[in-house]
Amino acid sequence: MQASRARLFKEYKEVQREKSADPDIQLVCDDSNIFKWTALIKGPSETPYEGGVFQLAFSVPEQYPLQPPQVRFLTKIFHPNVHFKTGEICLDILKNAWSPAWTLQSVCRAIIALMAHPEPDSPLNCDSGNLLRSGDVRGFQSMAKMYTRLAAMPKKG
C-alpha cells in the first residue's frame, strides 16, 4: 500500500513535469484519491478515431506496480479490442504481460497504439472484429468513425 502510493506519487510528479512532451495524452489524478486517475487521449491520425478525444478511467490496485492498473474507456468506442458495453480493454500488458516497467503514461501510449493497430483475432467486440476479419475495412471504418463523431467529438451548434 505504502509502496504503491510512493510510486504513484513519483508518476504524478513525472506527469506534471512531462506535460508538454506528449500532447496526445492528458493524464489527471483524482484530487482526493491517488489510486483513481483519468486520461484524455487523442484518437491517432489516419484512423477512424482521428479528431476524437477519448476518456479513460484508471483504477490502481494496492499491489501496484506489481499488478497492473485496471483501465477502461469511458467514451464509447467501436474497436475490436474494446468491450462495447463496458469499455473494457483487451491488451496483454494490462493482463499477463504487465510489468512494473510500464507506467500509467506508457499504458496510455500503448492504448493509442492499439487504437491504430486493432487485433481482430482476439476481439472483445465481435461485430467489430468480424468486419475486419471478413475484410470489410470500409464497413469497419465507417462504423468506428460514426461512433467517434457521436461520442468523442465536441457537440456542434
Binding site: Q55, L150, A152
Partner: peptide
Amino acid sequence: MEKTQNYDEIPVEPETE
C-alpha cells in the same frame, strides 16, 4: 471534459447507456 461525456447522445438502447 464535458465534450467527451456526451454519452446520452448515442442512439442506442437504454441499457447500453
